[in-house]
């Protein structure tokens, strides 16, 4: 009896030790350091909200060396920041697919406390769901809610399975009460784009919209403003037109449009179905890139 419990205990401690070989401490804010993951050789991922100062960031590695890191890019939408570190001979994360993840799977949240070693918190995956968009506008490939205590300093650290493989990184900043895990597949996509461009391009139509409902129960979005020379304005869209669908998908809420524009939408023409004076028509709009720093 006691032996099987000890085997279970050893397995968890082994998972922490194995997972801990890719967990770093990230020093980019006052007081408590956050955590990060050696995602690829020379690339550290952490939670964007824990980067308070962009200059003179340092990272404490699993072997206790503290090395300088440079911010390669950050995306508040998905709460992902990418740091570059010039180190050789360190592990990179072994990634576990979320495809087989189920509610109830045992999981551990890890962090690194400065030079004081690994820190762990144990629980289960509480819920797994489909794609979702964060309140900051970032697109997540799947929803993972961990039931683990997020102690100070664990933000940006990985959620690992009992084999020590990384499922994603944990952040309390994307939901009101409980932490979520940013899935590895999202981190891979955002990291590729941040490393290539330094920021995430968000699709942009240049219109202001408000939901309307017709007497027959159908819904749409009425156009309240049009950016002159913006993507929609250039396509001939006028104030008062009503958007019914984008690429055949009905839109009843501005959220539907945001979702449609998430991901790699910039430069890819969208077939918009509209009403003008009661007459349906279609027009192709090519989303531009949302101006950075503005709306």
């Amino acid at each position: 009896m006691a032996n099987s419990l000890t085997e279970y205990s050893n397995a968890l401690a082994d998972a922490v030790a194995r997972g801990g070989t890719v967990v770093v401490a990230v020093h980019a804010r006052e007081r408590i350091a956050s955590s990060g993951v050696l995602w690829r050789p020379g690339v550290v991922i952490t939670a964007d909200h824990t980067i308070k100062c962009e200059e003179e960031i340092t990272v404490t590695l699993p072997d206790n060396r503290t090395v300088p890191a440079t911010l390669a890019g950050r995306d508040s939408g998905t709460d992902i920041a990418v740091l570059r570190v010039d180190v050789a001979g360190v592990d990179a994360a072994r990634i576990a697919s979320h495809a087989t993840l189920q509610a109830g799977s045992m999981a551990l949240a890890l962090g690194r406390r400065g030079e004081n070693g690994i820190a762990a918190s144990f629980g289960v995956v509480s819920a797994v769901g489909g794609p979702w968009r964060t309140w900051r506008g970032g697109q997540m490939e799947c929803f993972i809610r961990p039931d683990v205590n997020m102690y100070p300093g664990l933000s940006g650290g990985p959620l690992i399975d009992v084999e020590g493989r990384v499922l994603g990184i944990n952040t309390p900043a994307l939901t009101r009460n409980l932490p979520v895990t940013i899935p590895a597949v999202t981190i891979d996509r955002v990291t590729d784009e941040l490393l290539a461009k330094g920021h995430i391009a968000r699709g942009y139509l240049g219109i202001g919209l408000h939901p309307v409902q017709f007497p027959d129960g159908r819904g749409g979005l009425i156009i309240l403003s049009v950016e002159p020379n913006g993507p929609a304005g250039s396509a001939g869209i006028l104030i008062g037109d009503v958007v019914l669908a984008l690429d055949g998908k009905p839109v009843g809420d501005t959220e539907d449009v945001q979702t449609h524009l998430a991901g790699e939408s910039v430069g890819k023409p969208v077939n918009a179905s509209l009403l003008r004076g009661g007459q349906p028509f279609n027009v192709s709009i090519t989303p531009g890139e949302r101006p950075r720093g503005g709306r």
Binding site: L12, A13, R113, A119, A120, S121, F122, Y151
Partner: peptide, 8 residues
């Protein structure tokens, strides 16, 4: 539960 850390 589990041992959280052994730093202290």
């Amino acid at each position: 539960g589990i041992i959280h850390a052994t730093s202290r």
